[in-house]
């Protein structure tokens, strides 16, 4: 490890590397793959994330020569900074569409409760099919992004089974969430059952990269509805910032706990 870069040079290398990744990914551009059900969409953000992982010092040892631990840490701070112009751009799509957003108001607000669908789908799979223990509570009560993870940390501690479940879904979501959210909405749209506005307003689940992937995929298959797709997705994402933690705290987590106790009465906590 001779010639270990200082913090400043490490930072410089980081930004240059990101710039290089970004240029390559934007040159490749959006790619479409038609399959029977619909179209699978590949977005530059997917390549960017995948390339970032491939060049991550924890995976690709040669990168450690250029990227110090501090540079990796800076990279973590840069995610929240770099997503801000994107979020701002997203917000600017709402203003011009504000009357259409208000028109869709009830659906927009109530779909936040639809996020409880995770319990409906994932809880039975985890508890009955995969025979998971209390990890299932932390894993399935929400999409386990940062605020949801913080709630679990606060309530059970991260060194509990619930904490392990939540962290597992968090880490997996970080690794594959962008891919799932880029590929799923265009396929669901291909079914031809749902209003594209419903597909758009469900994109706001509280993670910037999932939001980008979801809307990017939808806009690629329904380009003429771009303005309304962006506006509804942005509006629902803001609603999730505001309501997500509370829905989790007062509805989703108690409900998941209750279901778990019903499903496994013998394990009921005596504490």
């Amino acid at each position: 490890m001779t010639g270990k870069p200082g913090a400043a040079t490490g930072g410089l290398y980081l930004h240059i590397l990101v710039l290089a990744i970004v240029i390559v990914c934007e040159l490749i551009g959006i790619q479409r793959l038609s399959i029977g059900l619909g179209t699978v969409i590949f977005l530059p953000i997917l390549y960017a994330f995948a390339l970032g992982i491939l060049l991550n010092p924890a995976i690709f040892k040669a990168s450690a020569k250029f990227l110090s631990k501090d540079a990796v840490k800076l990279s973590g701070a840069m995610i929240t900074v770099a997503i801000m112009p994107f979020i701002a751009k997203f917000g600017t799509t709402v203003g011009p569409q504000i009357s259409k957003i208000i028109e869709a108001g009830p659906a927009l607000v109530l779909q936040e409760l639809g996020n409880l669908g995770t319990i409906l789908v994932a809880f039975p799979v985890a508890v009955f099919l995969l025979k998971m223990g209390r990890e299932a509570v932390g894993a399935t009560y929400s999409i386990d992004r940062e605020p949801n993870l913080a709630l679990i940390a606060d309530k059970y501690g991260l060194n509990s089974p619930e904490g392990a479940g939540a962290m597992g879904v968090y880490a997996t979501g970080t690794l594959i969430g962008t891919f799932v959210f880029a590929i799923m909405p265009p396929l669901v749209h291909g079914l031809g059952i749902f209003d594209v506005r419903a597909l758009a307003m469900s994109c706001g689940v509280g993670s910037g990269s999932m939001l980008a992937a979801c809307t990017g995929g939808l806009v690629a298959v329904v380009p003429d509805q771009k303005d309304i797709i962006l506006a509804l997705a942005a509006a629902s994402n803001i609603l999730t910032y505001a309501t997500g933690l509370y829905v989790g705290m007062f509805v989703a987590l108690p409900l998941t706990e209750w279901l778990y106790n019903k499903a496994r009465p013998s394990e009921r906590k005596t504490a």
């Binding site: 659906a107 779909q111 996020n115 669908g117 995770t118 979501g173 059952i193 506005r197 629902s236």
Partner: peptide, 18 residues
């Protein structure tokens, strides 16, 4: 489970919104 969580969260919202 994580994939089910993502599908469930998204589809739950889609169905209610629709």
């Amino acid at each position: 489970v994580a994939i089910c969580v993502m599908i469930g969260t998204y589809m739950g919202s889609v169905v209610v919104a629709d």
